[in-house]
Structure formats: structure tokens, C-alpha cells
Measured scan of single mutants.
Amino acid sequence: MASQGTKRSYEQMETDGERQNATEIRASVGKMIDGIGRFYIQMCTELKLSDYEGRLIQNSLTIERMVLSAFDERRNKYLEEHPSAGKDPKKTGGPIYKRVDRKWMRELVLYDKEEIRRIWRQANNGDDATAGLTHMMIWHSNLNDTTYQRTRALVRTGMDPRMCSLMQGSTLPRRSGAAGAAVKGVGTMVMELIRMIKRGINDRNFWRGENGRKTRSAYERMCNILKGKFQTAAQRAMMDQVRESRNPGNAEIEDLIFLARSALILRGSVAHKSCLPACVYGPAVASGYDFEKEGYSLVGIDPFKLLQNSQVYSLIRPNENPAHKSQLVWMACNSAAFEDLRVLSFIRGTKVSPRGKLSTRGVQIASNENMDAMESSTLELRSRYWAIRTRSGGNTNQQRASAGQISVQPAFSVQRNLPFDKPTIMAAFTGNTEGRTSDMRAEIIRMMEGAKPEEMSFQGRGVFELSDERAANPIVPSFDMSNEGSYFFGDNAEEYDN
């Protein structure tokens, strides 16, 4: 993207840094990872977990959730003011799984939030270390993106479920800051804005008074975040219109849905970061690795190297396929839920299948599930090659597409044709070009129609051997075009429920 120079890199967003050079960025990201790792080690000690239990991804998720809940100030305040039966607002906890007599047992633990905050700050040299908290939120978000298709949420806001490739980060909490905003897809931002506008339509006082002023500035800020994701002048001009509207209503909703559809071809720039579970960072720190000293990046080879040398386990339900569970977590670790499966298959070195073909449910185990038949197995999170994460949407291309997802959002900077089903997408653009945004709409449609099938995206960008740390010898991959490109292809993934 041309304006790259004016933006802070995501590592800076990730670490609240002012302008830093590459070495400083690597050190501050490393410091953040160190903090998460030290916190995780301490929690495993508190909970008396064995090494194996500490490497269980379900335990990692519970521990991450506990610290996120302990620092969720708004919710904590709300819980104190609106006490609900049987919930102690000062405590947080969740299921911890232990191996007892050759069987997995679930144990519900409860801790004072104050105590968890103390352990977290102690692991982070006394700081609140917001960057580390956001990092864990993005890992949870990436896992949700890989596990669930947001059909219901899309339909509720009037969008087409086939636009799911635009929904990265749709389950990120509001408090995820600049680093969170960077990884949100165009569809996620559109959905947040539509929800806001709908509230304004239904509630006369939404934009009024002292609160209304705050609401208005939040609305304009979200519009600017979305505008910054678009790469064409016409899309940005249309966002200006939406932002400046005196009284946002149905016309703005129409414009936003139009823009979301246009992003299936004229893709937005959305950041991709490899955020790993805390149970990967903990053992690495415990083994003596100093992330701050060595430096770390979320968008280069580092996460690949770390996963190459990590042992992570997962509980497996009786009829689940461990290899499929591994694929789910591998995609989440690489922030690749909406990437082209052919690119992923090449990088991973084994075939990556669409969601609907995987015999696996989510990673988390519900409290009512029976533990008797639970097994555990090693997650295979290694890769054959590594590639640089991208934040450009890439230019655009036609490809055989599917009944489910009709476009992709690249996660890796790797040369390819970008699949999208042009006739299906263009069919949504018939007729409606009147109104105050008509010239911009016409211009956007013209650009979409001009998108050429034979153009290559990320020209000359390749993948790298894991021994090639400096990215000196790019390998331009070859793809098996007979395979499906979309992950949520004609899909039956479970729906995400809060």
C-alpha cells in the first residue's frame, strides 16, 4: 500500500510504541512475548500442572481467558453494579484439565481477579502490559475465525453469508486497541457500523446529549479505520460520505453494504499476525530463551520457528480426527482463516481442507461434555516452508469459486491468482447506482469489472525454506488448481455463540 510509510507498523501498534527502528520493534515485541511466557509459567505453578498438562491447549485457553477477564475493567465495573446470582464479580476462573488415573478430569478453578492481575503485572515488570493482553485477544479471535462461520451475524446486519472472507476479527472485544483495529476485516468494521446506525434509528437519543457526542466521535473513528483499509480513492470518498452524514440511517447502511461487497474484489488491507497460545510461549521462556534479547516478529519467520520446536497437546472428542484438529489450530496460529487453501497447503506441506470436510468441533470443551471418553493427542503445528504475512489485500483475480465463501483475504505475501467468483459478486451490483453516491458507485463498479483474471497478485513473492531466515531465496510455489480455494466452501461450520 502506498501510504505504508505514514502508518505505524503493526509491531508498533502491538507494543504501543512511538516510531521505533526494526531492532527496537523486535525487542519490544519480544518483551511482550516474554511477559506472556513468564505469566503462563507462574500460572502453571499456581495450578500445580504437570509439564504435559501445561502444554494442553484447553488449559492455555482457560488461563488466557482468566487474565483477560481480570483486566476487563468495563465488564468488571458492570458486574459490580449489576450483581447477578451466583456470579462473584471479583473472581474469575474456568475449567482446568488434569490427568488422573490414566483419565482426563475437569476441575473448575476460581481465583481472585486481583490475584491474577498481581501475577500478570509481576510477570511483566510491574506494568499492565496491555500489548500482551491484546495479543491474547487476537489469538482467540484468530481461533474463532478458523472455527466458526459468522453466517447468522452477517444475515442479521443485512449482509450476504458468502462475504465471510471479510469477517476477520469479528469476535475481537471493543477494547483491543490499535492492534485489534489493524486485524479487523472490512466486513467486521461494516458490521460494527451498521449495528451502531441501527441503534440510532431505533433509539432517538442515541446521537443526542453528552453521551451522543461520545457516540458520534466513536462512529467517526470507526469510519476512519474502515476508510484506511480501502485502497481505492472511490471507496475512500464513499467512506467520507458515510462519516460526514448528519443523521446516519438506511442510506448509510446501503452504502456500507455496497462497500463491503466491493471489497470482495477491490480488497481492503487487513493486517495478519501470528499470535500463538500462551502454552507455546511459556515452555520456550522456561527453556531459557530470551525473546527480548533475541527479538521477535509476528509477521516473519519467528512464529514458524517457534511452532517448529513446540509440543502442544489437545483434548480430542471420541469421533474427532486429531489431524483435522491440528489443521484448525495451525490455521489459527498463522492467522489464515480466509487465505486461499492452495497457498496454505503449499506452505504447510500437507493438504489443507475446507472447514466442512474437517471432523472436528471447536477447541474448547463445553462444561456439560462427558470427560470419560476424552483422549488427548499432539497437535501437528509444523510447516514445510515459511512466508511473510501481508497486510495488503493483493490485486484481484477471477477463479472458480464456491457456493460458500466467494473470495479470499490473503494472509501471506505469496504470488498467486486470487480466487473470487466474479459473476456471483457482480450480480449483486445491478441497477442500484442512484442517489448521492452514484458517481462513486459507478466508478467502483467500473474498477471491479476491469479486474483481470490473468493478473498475478504479489508478483514474484515466494515462500522460503525454514533454514532461509533472511528470506534470501524465494520459492514461487505451484498450486494444484483442481483443489478448492475457499475454506468455508459450501460450508456447515458451527455458528459462533458468545
Rank of each mutant, 00 (worst) to 15 (best):
S345R: 03
E380P: 02
L61W: 05
R208V: 12
V463C: 04
T157R: 04
M238V: 13
R38G: 14
I63S: 03
Y111C: 07
V476C: 01
A403S: 08
Q459K: 03
S392V: 06
E81R: 00
Q415T: 02
R195A: 06
R267Y: 12
R55S: 15
N205L: 01
E107M: 10
Y148H: 03
N417V: 15
E53N: 04
I406D: 12
D145R: 08
R204P: 13
D302A: 02
H272I: 11
M167K: 14
E46V: 12
S407R: 07
M1K: 14
N211W: 06
W104P: 03
G212F: 04
S467M: 14
I96G: 03
L264N: 14
R246C: 13
R152N: 08
D112G: 14
G288H: 10
S69K: 01
G200I: 07
R221H: 12
M238G: 15
N202D: 15
A403D: 09
L306E: 12
I96H: 08
V186H: 01
Q405C: 10
Q399E: 14
Q122S: 00
M456W: 14
Q415L: 01
T45P: 06
V312H: 14
L172E: 10
R342F: 04
A428I: 12
L259W: 07
S165L: 08
E254F: 12
L47K: 13
Y148T: 13
Q409L: 02
R221Q: 12
A471Q: 10
V299H: 10
E495D: 03
L298W: 08
G282M: 12
P283H: 02
M167D: 10
N224R: 10
P173R: 02
P161D: 01
Q42I: 05
E495Q: 07
A251E: 10
S376Y: 15
Q20H: 04
A387K: 11
C279Q: 12
K7Y: 11
A237L: 15
F206L: 06
F479R: 00
R55A: 03
R118Q: 03
R55T: 02
Q398H: 15
F429D: 07
R8N: 11
E469Q: 02
T130I: 08
S359Y: 05
F39W: 02
T350V: 02
V463G: 13
N370H: 15
V352K: 13
K351Y: 01
M137G: 10
V186G: 15
L79V: 00
P423N: 15
Y487A: 11
R389S: 13
N321G: 13
E495C: 10
V408F: 09
V352Q: 09
T437K: 03
R74M: 00
E252Q: 01
A234G: 15
M440A: 15
A471D: 10
G54F: 07
G228H: 05
A442D: 08
N205E: 04
G490K: 09
D491K: 06
R361H: 10
K198S: 15
D255G: 05
F346E: 03
T15I: 14
M137D: 10
K214Y: 14
I265W: 12
P303D: 10
K325F: 11
E469C: 07
A181Y: 12
S392Y: 07
L166A: 15
M238W: 06
M239E: 14
L226D: 11
E375A: 12
K357Q: 08
L193P: 13
I475W: 07
L307N: 08
I96Y: 08
T171H: 07
S69D: 10
S50Q: 02
G282A: 14
A471F: 10
M191T: 15
P453G: 08
Q12R: 00
A131V: 04
G177C: 08
K351H: 04
G86C: 02
I406L: 00
Q20E: 05
A278W: 09
M189I: 08
P474A: 01
G490M: 11
E18C: 13
I225R: 12
S486L: 10
I197G: 15
D160N: 12
Q58C: 07
E320G: 13
G349F: 10
T23Q: 15
A451N: 08
M374H: 07
N432C: 05
H324A: 03
D240Q: 15
R348Q: 12
E64N: 05
A218G: 05
Y148K: 11
H135E: 09
D255W: 11
E24C: 06
Y40R: 13
V280R: 12
D88I: 09
W120V: 04
G435I: 14
M163G: 05
T134R: 07
T437W: 10
R355K: 08
V476D: 12
F338R: 02
G349P: 10
G209L: 01
L276W: 12
G356R: 12
F304N: 08
A401I: 01
A286F: 09
E11A: 13
S383P: 07
S376V: 15
R216G: 14
D128I: 00
L341D: 03
G212P: 03
S326G: 15
L108D: 10
L172R: 04
Q241I: 06
D112H: 04
A129E: 06
S165Y: 02
V186Y: 09
K87Q: 03
G450R: 00
R436L: 14
K227M: 11
S28E: 00
G35R: 03
S176Q: 11
L172S: 15
E469P: 10
L418R: 06
Y281W: 09
R441C: 09
N397Y: 03
D101V: 12
P477F: 09
A472S: 02
I33G: 15
I301W: 03
E484M: 11
S407I: 01
C164H: 05
M191E: 13
R208N: 09
T151P: 01
R213L: 03
I425M: 05
N492K: 15
P161E: 12
P354I: 07
P83L: 08
G295N: 13
A373Y: 04
T390Q: 14
V242P: 05
D439L: 02
P277F: 07
E46T: 02
G228I: 06
K273P: 09
G187F: 08
P277T: 03
G35Q: 07
I388K: 00
G169M: 06
G228R: 09
K293Q: 01
T433W: 13
T188G: 06
I119V: 04
A85Y: 14
T62W: 06
R348C: 12
S217C: 13
M105W: 00
M43R: 15
S274Y: 12
G394Y: 14
R199Q: 01
R400L: 15
G249F: 10
W386E: 05
Q241P: 14
R342K: 14
E252I: 11
E292L: 07
S413K: 14
A323V: 13
A234K: 08
P95A: 01
D468I: 06
M43L: 09
L108I: 02
G460D: 06
A401K: 15
S377T: 02
N473Q: 05
T378N: 02
I347P: 09
W139L: 12
A260D: 10
L259D: 10
G431F: 15
V186S: 14
I63N: 04
N250I: 14
Y78P: 12
G35M: 10
S383V: 13
A271E: 07
R38S: 01
G93R: 06
E107H: 03
F291D: 12
P277W: 10
Q58K: 05
E252M: 11
I201D: 07
R152K: 06
P453M: 07
G295W: 10
T424Y: 02
N319I: 08
S60E: 07
G435K: 08
R213I: 10
M196L: 13
R216S: 02
T350W: 05
N142C: 06
I197L: 15
F230M: 10
G450K: 14
L172Y: 10
A181M: 13
T151Q: 06
S326L: 11
T437G: 04
K273G: 07
R8L: 03
S367G: 00
G460K: 00
N21K: 05
A251R: 02
K452W: 05
N417E: 05
T15P: 01
Y487I: 07
I257D: 12
G349I: 10
D340N: 04
S165R: 10
R175Y: 10
A251S: 06
F338L: 14
K227Y: 11
K113R: 05
T424I: 15
R342Y: 06
S478F: 05
S413G: 12
L143S: 12
E81M: 13
